[in-house]
């Protein structure tokens, strides 16, 4: 089953996709149709958070989202350029804090944190941000350096 063509934006670029099956997941569209492999495939069941992207600035698990659901939306992925100031700030904080090791969970963490900051503003409480990252799994860092990156972001101010 396929529906009418889809139009949405990814990182500011318009996409126009025809013949996307109704059952196709956004994760697979991004990775295999659009070649945006920065969004990572982990569990495909919504448990690990590695596939997190922003849909109209809201944190979204792309493995549990059908591509047809994002028709007309603006998507942001880890490949976004410096024009996304919030993602840029989160990336810089992860860099300075060394908040990654193997890097496989990193795109999901960066997008989840950027989504939280966009949704709740830079004055969001520390606990609010840390709670908001509870759905993203990391096996390498023990989260310690990721927490330091969150603290960096908060102390540097808006």
């Amino acid at each position: 089953m396929t529906s009418p063509p889809l139009r949405f934006q990814v990182n500011g670029h318009p996409q126009h996709l025809a013949n996307v099956p109704d059952s196709e997941r956004l994760l697979d569209t991004l990775r295999w149709r659009l070649g945006l492999k920065g969004t990572k495939e982990g569990c495909r069941t919504g448990d690990c958070g590695a596939c997190t992207v922003l849909v109209d600035d809201r944190t979204t698990l792309s493995c549990l989202t059908l591509t047809h659901e994002v028709d007309g939306a603006k998507l942001t992925t880890i490949e976004t350029g410096p024009e996304d100031l919030v993602v840029t700030r989160v990336r810089a904080a992860f860099d300075r804090a060394g908040a990654l090791q193997c890097g496989y969970c990193t795109p999901g963490f960066v997008m989840a944190l950027a989504g939280l900051l966009k949704e709740r503003g830079t004055a969001a409480a520390r606990e609010e941000l840390l709670d908001g990252l509870g759905g993203n799994l990391c096996r390498c860092t023990g989260y310690a350096a990721i927490v330091r990156a969150v603290d960096e972001l908060r102390t540097e101010g808006p």
């Binding site: 492999k37 920065g38 490949e79 860099d95 804090a97 990654l100 990193t106």
Partner: peptide, 19 residues
């Protein structure tokens, strides 16, 4: 971006590292 602490931070934070 700088790779301030880890040299691989640049590609891993840009989403360009190929696994």
């Amino acid at each position: 971006m700088s790779g301030a602490v880890r040299p691989d931070a640049v590609v891993k934070l840009a989403g360009t590292a190929v696994y």
